[in-house]
Design a binder for these strands. Structure first.
Ligand SMILES: [Mn+2]
Ligand SMILES: [Mn+2]
Ligand SMILES: [Mn+2]
Ligand SMILES: [Mn+2]
Lengths: 225, 225
DNA sequence: CGGGGAAGTTAGACATGCCTAACTTGTAGC
DNA sequence: GCTACAAGTTAGGCATGTCTAACTTCCCCG
């Protein structure tokens, strides 16, 4: 409820917890946060304890970590910030979509609410960021995201709706192959455990996509897009 | 020499030391930094000691605090950042010139060198910020700044070259009176100790300017501008 | 159903940056 | 020249966020 300033650390924790369940239902554990935030497990234990006290997280020892209502509200603010900043960098400053994540990761903690709103206005209130991720409204509403992972998609016609920005190298690889947001493609052979699918991006040649790249891509059936 | 990252605190210290001698020759003391940075005197003593060790400042106990060559280089980087950010906020996001300082004070520590260069390019490599302050080049060159303070300017015709952004209230007051960068004005009666000058901004009526506002304004003779 | 190992927590430490209280130094004015 | 007092420093402490080492818990597999 209160609008006290959270530390950059607290902001990153709630944001990462929220993000973990946006596309898959990964349960959030100490180990997960430890790897995602690049800190040791005891550091996570300690900080989670503080955030439980602050009313942002829920956690019973050895169990999963979840957001309170207030934690989710703050998380959505951070996600909004992050994605508006990424959009600004790509559309106004000609950054590549593989170059914006780290910059946004820092700036999201330094921009005032006013600056975020001004950027949002300059950009024309975009609904999605350069990777296809929906941008929460100021009130914290997010477009529902659906989609099938390309690593597991059936043969047929699809539209790319979202590409994970977790690995810049993968983003570069995909951009080079024409796998960008809104691209249309055909799955010729489904991926299986360990081996990626064979696909054809509209206007290109058939190709075998490595499994790690495929699992970063999310699709909707062409009819639904 | 080395390009190790400085903490936000260290960045602010060298920037403030540099800024103190840009327009007047204020000797930099512990008390001065304490007031400017809003921290206690012991905190300044402690941090200055660390920056001396780090090779950025020189200081003999109870004496004045000065920059080393390396400290000056880092200070100029921060001044460049600060002023480019202010210019961006005013020209691209329609901030008022009285609203940008605090935002820039935070962002200057969060922007990458790449982002600063991109903003600089977007802005067309501006030479001065919204307050008329010169923007150092990437290599650390700054246009020499001259100018007479309006509180002490003689009767005659002048051009406004710079307005101190230290007090937002004064900036609003000056903007309302038409005293902005590049404005032309006539000093009708010089200011004296405690009382401001009587001036006439081109296109306006004569007015008595309060001394605090006048001392924020720097001028060049019309012939030189 | 009982180990063993992965995951998690606790304990203790350190770095940074801030504070107040108390002491020291320098100097401006008498 | 002395001295009062402003300025500066030292001492000791606190908050945040991080670590490693050591201990505890959970639960999967034999
Ligand atoms: Mn991102
Ligand atoms: Mn972040
Ligand atoms: Mn600053
Ligand atoms: Mn300025």
């Amino acid at each position: 409820m209160d609008e006290a300033e959270l530390s950059a650390t607290a902001q990153d924790y709630v944001k990462v917890v929220w993000s973990a369940t946006e596309w898959t239902d990964t349960p959030v554990t100490t180990k997960f946060l430890s790897q995602r935030l690049n800190v040791s497990a005891p550091t996570v234990s300690e900080n989670v304890r503080k955030l439980v006290t602050a009313g942002l997280l829920e956690h019973e020892p050895y169990g999963a970590i979840t957001l309170t209502r207030e934690g989710e509200r703050r998380a959505l603010q951070m996600v909004r910030r992050h994605r508006i900043i990424e959009t600004f960098l790509v559309t106004q400053l000609r950054y590549g979509w593989d170059e914006v994540h780290d910059e946004a990761e820092v700036l999201e903690h330094a921009c005032s609410a006013r600056l975020i709103d001004a950027l949002d206005g300059l950009l024309g209130h975009p609904r999605r960021d350069p990777h296809g991720d929906p941008i929460p409204s100021p009130a914290g509403e997010v477009d529902a995201v659906e989609g099938v992972n390309l690593a597991a998609a059936a043969v047929g016609r699809w539209v790319v709706t979202r590409v994970s920005d977790a690995d810049p190298e993968v983003l570069r690889e995909l951009a080079a192959l024409g796998v960008v947001v809104d691209a249309r493609l055909t799955v010729l052979r489904p991926g299986e455990d360990g081996s990626g699918p064979r696909i054809e991006v509209d206007g290109g040649a058939p190709l075998d996509l490595p499994a790690p790249a495929a699992s970063a891509v999310w699709l909707l059936p062409e009819a639904r897009a």
